[in-house]
């Protein structure tokens, strides 16, 4: 299946802004984070097709995944 991955803010460093990725059907969102070397503890907003999702979400063909870091300063 083909996914579109969109990274935001510091997650773009040494990675990419947007990328098409080919992965097996049903791939876990948590495993995608591992593949991208993004620690779940740094992830704030995590969207699949614009809806908030968690690491247990299974991805399907055509999904658009958007990953934002946790922001907590003031």
């Amino acid at each position: 299946m083909l996914l579109e991955i969109r990274l935001f803010a510091t997650f773009r460093h040494r990675r990419f802004k947007t990328k098409q990725m080919e992965l097996p059907v049903g791939f876990l969102l948590g495993n995608l984070l591992k593949k991208l070397d993004i620690s779940i503890k740094n992830v704030g907003i995590l969207l699949v097709n614009g809806k908030h999702s968690d690491k247990e979400t299974r991805l399907i063909d055509g999904d658009v995944v958007a990953i934002f870091p946790v922001v907590g300063g003031g």
Binding site: T10, G44, H52, V70, G72, G73
Partner: peptide, 17 residues
């Protein structure tokens, strides 16, 4: 709860403000 579930700090510890 959605954006901070289980989190203690954000990337500001690295990036500053």
């Amino acid at each position: 709860e959605t954006i901070y579930k289980g989190q203690e700090t954000g990337i500001e510890t690295e990036t500053g403000t």
